[in-house]
Write a protein that binds this DNA or RNA. Structure first.
Length: 452
RNA sequence: GCGAAUAUGGUGAAGUGGUUAACACGCCAGAUUGUGGCUCUGGUAUGCGUGGGUUCGAUCCCCACUAUUCGCCCCA
C-alpha cells in the first residue's frame, strides 16, 4: 500500500466541510474589507525565498522543500505566502494600478520540511493578506482587525494580540547596537543559541525561551526607547486606530518576528487554549517596508498577516466550537423494484437540474435498505416510486420530519418540493424580501449576519 | 538533527508463548413495526506494520527497519 507523505493529510467528510466553511468565511470577510483574492504558484525560484528570508537561518538551510527540476533550475515549494505575492506584485506592475493601495489575500498550501507534530505539518494551509502601497498606520490596524475578526467570527474566545514595533531601519540599527553593547559583557550567562544570535540576529535573543527569565534580559534596553520621532508616531497611531476599532492588544517587547524585512509594527495572535502547548501562535504579521525593494521592486511600504488554518482548526476542536455546517439532502429517490429504476434515473436528473440536492440508490438494494440509506443521509423528503402510482402519473412522497406522506401528481412535483422545503426551513410565503430573518434567508444572506 | 510512545478486521478496541483471536460499532439478509429510524435473529470480515532472531511452536519475547503520534530544536 502507498501511504500519504509524512506530515500531509487527507481531508474529507465532516473535516472537509469545516475547511470549506472556514474558507467561505474568509472569502466573505475579505470581500467586506475589500481584499482581493490572488493565487500564485505553489513553487517558485528558490532565490525568491532565500532572499526574502535570509540566507543564514535554519529555515533556509534545512526547512525548505528545495529541489532541482529537469531543466536544472533551483525550485522551492513555497514555505509562506508573502514572498510570492510580492513577486507577483512586482512582476505584474501592480504598483502602477490606479487603485492604491493594493490589497490582496491568499489561501493555499505551503510546504515546510520539518518533523511533524501537533499543529505543525509539512503541507499546511495558510490564509494571509498583504496590503501594498501605503504606510498609513490605519492600514496596520486594519490588517490586525481583519485577523482578529476572523477569529471572533469563528467563535474563538481567549484570543490575545501581542503588539510590538521594531521602528524603522534607523531606530532599529541604533537599538541593535545598544542591545549588543548591553548584552555582550554578560553573554556568557546566556544559552548557546543566544551566543550565536548576538552577532547574527541580536533581537532574536529577546524571544529566547531559555533565557526568558534572566534578570539581565529583563533589564535589557527596550526598542521603544530608541525609536526616532517618525517611528514613535507610527506606533502611537497604530495603537490609536486599534483603540478606535475596539481591538484589544498587549504590548509585548519580545515579539520580534525573526526576519530582517520587518519594520515598525509586528504582532502575533495567540490562543489561550488548554493543551495547545508551544504551538499556541495562531498567526502573525507586521509591516515590511523593505521587502518589495529587497525583491527587486521599488520602495513600496506594505503590511500583512498570515494564519495557519490547520492550527485554527485545532483550536476550534479543542474549544469544542460547533461550526454551523449544513448536513443532509433535499430528497432521496427510491424505487420499489427494477421496473421503476429508469424513471428514477430521469426524475433524479430533473430534480437536480431544478436546484434540489438529490440522491438515489446505486446498489440495487432492497426498499428497506433504501429507507435506511435515505435516513442516514438526513434526507428531508423520501420519494418512493412504485409501478402502480407511476401508471396513474403520480408518485409517493414522504416528509421525513413530519412523517406526512402524500401522493403527488408528476407535473406538480417540482412545485410541491419547493413549497414544502420552504415550509420546513421556516420561510413564509409572504416573505419575498430575502432577508426576513427566517432560516431560508439566512442561508442566502449569511454574510449580512456577520456582526463586527 | 535529538528524544518518547504506539503499530491487531471497514472503524473503535480487548487479549494470549500453543488447536476455530473477544467484544462493540458498521454493513448485508430476515423477523416485527403499513416501507427506514427501536427491538430480535442470522450473516459478514484476505486481521495481529515489515524483515530477521530465540523457541518444538510467536500476534504475544529480543533486534533492526518502516510508519504514525507526541515532545525538543527551529518557527516563515
Amino acid at each position: 500500500m502507498i501511504n500519504r507523505q509524512k506530515g500531509c493529510h487527507d481531508i474529507y467528510g465532516l473535516e472537509a466541510k469545516k475547511w470549506q466553511y472556514i474558507s467561505n468565511l474568509i472569502d466573505s470577510v475579505c470581500q467586506k474589507y475589500h481584499y482581493e483574492y490572488i493565487r500564485t504558484p505553489i513553487f517558485e525560484a528558490s532565490e525568491l525565498y532565500h532572499r526574502g528570508i535570509g540566507e543564514q537561518t535554519d529555515i533556509v538551510t534545512k526547512e525548505m522543500y528545495d529541489f532541482k527540476d529537469k531543466g536544472d533550475r533551483n525550485i522551492t515549494l513555497r514555505p509562506e505566502g508573502t514572498a510570492g505575492v510580492v513577486r507577483a506584485y512586482i512582476e505584474n506592475k501592480m504598483y502602477g494600478d490606479s487603485n492604491q493601495p493594493i490589497k490582496l489575500y491568499y489561501n493555499g498550501t505551503m510546504y515546510r520540511y520539518e518533523r511533524p507534530q501537533s499543529g505543525r505539518d509539512r503541507e499546511l494551509t495558510q490564509f494571509g493578506i498583504e496590503a501594498l502601497g501605503s504606510e498609513d498606520p490605519m492600514l496596520d490596524a486594519e490588517v490586525i482587525s481583519l485577523a482578529v475578526n476572523i477569529y471572533r467570527l469563528v467563535g474563538l474566545k481567549g484570543i490575545k494580540v501581542n503588539l510590538n514595533t521594531l521602528g524603522d531601519k534607523e531606530s532599529r540599527d541604533r537599538y541593535r547596537e545598544a542591545l549588543i553593547e548591553y548584552i555582550r559583557p554578560h553573554i556568557g550567562e546566556f544559552c548557546e543559541d543566544c551566543q550565536t544570535r548576538l552577532e547574527k540576529n541580536p533581537l532574536r535573543i529577546l524571544d529566547c525561551k531559555i533565557d526568558h527569565d534572566n534578570e539581565i534580559m529583563k533589564k535589557a534596553p527596550k526598542i521603544t526607547d530608541y525609536l526616532n520621532e517618525k517611528s514613535k508616531k507610527h506606533f502611537q497611531e497604530v495603537k490609536k486606530y486599534l483603540d478606535l476599532l475596539d481591538i484589544e492588544y498587549v504590548e509585548n517587547p519580545s515579539i520580534v518576528r525573526g526576519l530582517d524585512y520587518y519594520d515598525h509594527t509586528v504582532f502575533e495572535i495567540e490562543a489561550d487554549i488548554e493543551g495547545f502547548g508551544s504551538q499556541n501562535v495562531l498567526g502573525g504579521g507586521g509591516r515590511y517596508n523593505n521587502l518589495v525593494k529587497e525583491l527587486g521592486g521599488m520602495e513600496v511600504p506594505a503590511v500583512g498577516f498570515a494564519m495557519g488554518l490547520g492550527r485554527l482548526m485545532l483550536a476550534i476542536e479543542k474549544e469544542n466550537i460547533q461550526l454551523p455546517i449544513e448536513e443532509g439532502i433535499d430528497a432521496f429517490v427510491m424505487y420499489v423494484s427494477e421496473t421503476e429504476k429508469d424513471y428514477a434515473t430521469t426524475l433524479v436528473q430533473e430534480l437536480r437540474m431544478s436546484g434540489f440536492s438529490v440522491e438515489t440508490d446505486y446498489l440495487n438494494r432492497s426498499l428497506k435498505a433504501q429507507f435506511k440509506q435515505a435516513d442516514r443521509l438526513h434526507s428531508k423528503f423520501f420519494i418512493i416510486l412504485n409501478d402502480e402510482d407511476l401508471k396513474e402519473n403520480r408518485i409517493q412522497i414522504k416528509n421525513n420530519q413530519t412523517k406526512k406522506e402524500e401522493k403527488v401528481e408528476l407535473d406538480y412535483i417540482l412545485y410541491y418540493l419547493d413549497e414544502e422545503i420552504s415550509i420546513l426551513d421556516g420561510h413564509s410565503d409572504e416573505c419575498d424580501c430575502g432577508d426576513c430573518g427566517c432560516d431560508h434567508c439566512h442561508t442566502d444572506h449569511e454574510e449580512d449576519d456577520i456582526d463586527f
